[in-house]
Every structure is written in C-alpha cells, then in structure tokens.
Amino acid sequence: MKAIEVKDLTKYYGSFCAVDHITFEVEKGEFFGFLGPNGAGKTTTMRMLTGLSESSEGTASIMGYDISRDPFHAKEHFGIVPEVSNIYEDLTAWNNLMFAGELYGMQKSTRSRRALELLDVFELTEFKDKKVKGFSKGMRRKLTLSMAMIHSPDILFLDEPTSGLDVQSSIKLKEILSDLSKDGTTIFLTTHTLEEANILCDRIGIIARGKLAAVDAPEKLKRTIQAAQSVVFSFNTITSTSIPVSDLAALPAVSSVLKEGDKFRLYTNDPSLVATSLFEYAKGHSLKIVSINTLGPSLEDAFLAIIKQHEERRREP
C-alpha cells in the first residue's frame, strides 16, 4: 500500500481545466516535492488530496482510503500545514494545541502528553501560556506544524512551509522536517524554493499548466540536461562590467553567459575545455582568476528546461 495514490486526478472550474488527469504515487516515508510555476495546479492538487476540494474526475487515496468516498478515515492519517498559519491569535499556544487535538478526537491525557512533546521539539515550551498574537512568524509556523502533528499523522501536507521566514527559522524548520522524514513520516511538500526541494526531497513532481511534466529524484532530473553544466568564476577586477560578455561567449564550447554579481557563469557541455580557455583568456588580458568552480546542472536549470520542453510540446500541432 502506498501512502498516496493518485490516478487521473482532474479538476475543472467551468470549462477551465486546472488539473489535467495527473497520475503518481508517493511511498510510505518518502519526502515528495510538488513544484510548478504560479497557477500550474499545485494548490488545487493539494486541496483535492486533502479533501478540501472535490475532484471532477479520477481518484486520490490516502493510506488506502479514497479521500472522496471515505474522507473520515483518510483524514485520520494526515495533517495539513497551509501557507497561511491557521492558528487562533487570541488563544495561547497550549490552547491551540488542545483544540487541534480535540478536533482529531484525542483523549485529553493523550493530547496533553503529545502537546508537551511538540512544544519541546519546536522550542516553544517557554511560550506555552502566551497568546499567539505576540508570536513572530517563525514561531507561528512552528506552532502550525505542531498542530498538524498533534495526532502523530502518517502523512504531512506542507504548503510553502518556510515562506516569509528569516534564515535562522527556515533552517531550523527544515532540520525538523528532515528528522520527521527520517523517522518515517511521509511528507508532501509544495514550494517555490527549488534549493529547498533539492536538499529535502527524495523525489519531485513537476506540474505545468495542470499536467504532470516529470516525476523523479532531483539528481536524475538534473542529469536529463547535461548541457546545463557550468563554470562559475570571478576575475581580480574591481567590477566585472569591464569584461566584455561577447569575449566570454566566444570561448570554445560556451553555449551562454550569465552575469551573477561579481561572477560569471558560463554554460557548457565541456567544462574542462571552457576552464582551459578561460585561463588562456585571463593570461592574454593580464587578468587573474580569483575563484573558479565547475558545477553540474542545478534543480533550477532542470525545472526551467522541463517547463520549457512541456510548453514546446503543447504548441506542437
């Protein structure tokens, strides 16, 4: 039995098809990322998976339970962390957790014990009796995650969980999610942060205009576009604007040039040839290379290439 099974899932709004017959599976304990441009169908898909929106066609099962036919048993197995924290500001952290536990039908002693555990994990114990209206955004996100986890669900649905967080809060939250995944919790994550997905996810599904464009492990997605290998470097000049981009674009095996702050990125399918040519160029122009790195394709490169290929296929007659 899979944690999540989706077959031909479809959603129409009038004549507009927001999600178009998508099919995929998520294994138990898997950290699954769901990515796509704005308006691609990510949120609509998550709403159907969690029973917040009825599908027009197809099926979605949670731990073997059809979310449309048996929502009660399906919902027992998951927790949801929406993009906007769903907490009550005039209640304390403790009372929010007690309320969430009561919604899941937990006995008072069980939810009290679980709430204490979660407050400790999320470093919120000292704020237990404080009203949420005084919490920072990072604290709110941690409390929202605690509420979703109060009943120890098999699956967590996360919609942009680190959106708007400061760096320290974001890092802490990702550490917690990684630990949860290692302990066997299945996580379904939607995010705009590609690096976040690259670090956390076992596999990634990419949706574009309602259709599933690709599903695979991040490294396998990257390997589909080897031409996106690159050499990133900087010269010892005060400003890189003094370096003609046309000179760099003319180097052997360079397919394109991108300026990144005080550095340049040269895309190529032959990094070693580009690096050799670059050193020759620097020597001939009395320049010194102060940093240089050869990089494989990033998840961002793969994401953009897959979306572009999907768009091109759609335009084919």
Rank of each mutant, 00 (worst) to 15 (best):
L299V: 12
I206L: 07
L9F: 07
K283R: 12
R209S: 10
I22S: 08
K42Q: 11
T162L: 05
T185D: 08
K42V: 08
A208S: 14
A148T: 10
V274R: 07
K182G: 02
H310L: 02
Y267P: 00
E54R: 15
Q226G: 03
I225T: 09
L103E: 00
M46L: 14
V167E: 07
I204Q: 02
N95W: 03
L212I: 01
F72Y: 15
D120V: 00
A228D: 06
S178N: 12
E311T: 11
F78V: 08
S152P: 00
L212F: 02
D90V: 00
T23E: 12
T44A: 06
K7S: 15
G58E: 10
A250H: 04
A214I: 08
S246D: 14
K263R: 13
E219D: 15
D70G: 05
V6Y: 03
L118D: 08
T190V: 00
I87F: 03
M1W: 01
A250Q: 05
A275Q: 13
F233N: 13
T224K: 14
R313K: 06
A100F: 15
C17T: 13
K75M: 12
G284W: 03
P252F: 11
T44I: 05
K220V: 13
S256I: 01
R114D: 01
K288Q: 09
G210Q: 01
R313C: 00
M98R: 03
K2F: 11
N236R: 09
R111F: 05
A305G: 07
V254A: 12
L287M: 08
T239S: 10
A302Y: 13
G101E: 04
A60L: 11
L177M: 15
E312K: 07
P297A: 12
H21P: 07
T186R: 04
L97K: 12
T237I: 08
S53C: 09
R265F: 00
H192F: 05
S146L: 02
V290P: 04
F32G: 03
L118M: 09
A228M: 05
E25T: 11
I171R: 07
N293G: 10
I225Q: 00
L273A: 10
T276Y: 13
